[in-house]
Amino acid sequence: SIKEIEKEEIIKVLKEVNFNKKLASEILGIPLRTLYKRLKEYGI
Results as ranks from 00 to 15, higher is better:
residue 1 S to P: 13
residue 1 S to D: 13
residue 2 I to P: 13
residue 2 I to T: 13
residue 3 K to H: 12
residue 3 K to A: 13
residue 3 K to L: 11
residue 4 E to Q: 12
residue 4 E to G: 09
residue 4 E to L: 11
residue 4 E to M: 08
residue 4 E to V: 11
residue 5 I to D: 11
residue 5 I to Q: 15
residue 6 E to P: 09
residue 6 E to N: 11
residue 6 E to A: 11
residue 7 K to I: 15
residue 7 K to T: 07
residue 7 K to A: 08
residue 7 K to D: 06
residue 8 E to R: 13
residue 9 E to D: 10
residue 9 E to A: 14
residue 9 E to Q: 15
residue 10 I to Q: 01
residue 10 I to Y: 05
residue 10 I to A: 03
residue 10 I to C: 04
residue 11 I to R: 06
residue 11 I to A: 05
residue 11 I to N: 04
residue 12 K to G: 06
residue 12 K to Y: 06
residue 12 K to W: 07
residue 12 K to E: 05
residue 13 V to A: 08
residue 13 V to N: 01
residue 13 V to Y: 02
residue 14 L to N: 00
residue 15 K to N: 11
residue 15 K to Y: 10
residue 15 K to P: 01
residue 15 K to C: 09
residue 15 K to W: 11
residue 16 E to P: 01
residue 16 E to N: 10
residue 16 E to K: 13
residue 16 E to R: 14
residue 16 E to W: 10
residue 16 E to M: 15
residue 16 E to I: 12
residue 17 V to G: 02
residue 17 V to T: 10
residue 17 V to H: 06
residue 17 V to M: 06
residue 17 V to F: 05
residue 17 V to S: 08
residue 18 N to G: 12
residue 18 N to V: 04
residue 19 F to D: 05
residue 19 F to I: 01
residue 19 F to H: 07
residue 19 F to N: 09
residue 19 F to P: 02
residue 20 N to I: 04
residue 20 N to K: 04
residue 21 K to R: 11
residue 21 K to C: 10
residue 21 K to V: 15
residue 21 K to Q: 07
residue 22 K to M: 10
residue 22 K to H: 10
residue 23 L to T: 06
residue 23 L to E: 07
residue 24 A to H: 00
residue 24 A to M: 03
residue 24 A to Y: 01
residue 25 S to M: 03
residue 25 S to E: 01
residue 25 S to H: 03
residue 26 E to I: 15
residue 27 I to G: 02
residue 27 I to M: 10
residue 28 L to W: 01
residue 28 L to A: 01
residue 28 L to V: 02
residue 29 G to R: 07
residue 29 G to A: 06
residue 29 G to D: 05
residue 30 I to M: 11
residue 30 I to A: 01
residue 31 P to A: 11
residue 31 P to C: 06
residue 31 P to M: 05
residue 32 L to K: 02
residue 32 L to Y: 05
residue 32 L to H: 02
residue 33 R to E: 15
residue 33 R to G: 10
residue 34 T to K: 08
residue 34 T to E: 15
residue 35 L to N: 00
residue 35 L to E: 00
residue 35 L to W: 02
residue 35 L to A: 00
residue 35 L to R: 00
residue 36 Y to E: 15
residue 36 Y to M: 15
residue 37 K to A: 14
residue 37 K to H: 09
residue 37 K to P: 01
residue 38 R to K: 15
residue 39 L to N: 01
residue 39 L to E: 01
residue 39 L to D: 00
residue 39 L to V: 04
residue 39 L to K: 01
residue 40 K to Y: 11
residue 40 K to E: 13
residue 41 E to N: 05
residue 41 E to G: 05
residue 41 E to R: 06
residue 42 Y to K: 02
residue 42 Y to L: 15
residue 42 Y to H: 07
residue 42 Y to D: 03
residue 42 Y to A: 05
residue 43 G to V: 05
residue 43 G to N: 10
residue 43 G to I: 05
residue 43 G to K: 07
residue 43 G to M: 08
residue 43 G to Q: 10
residue 44 I to D: 04
residue 44 I to W: 11
residue 44 I to S: 04
residue 44 I to E: 04
residue 44 I to H: 05
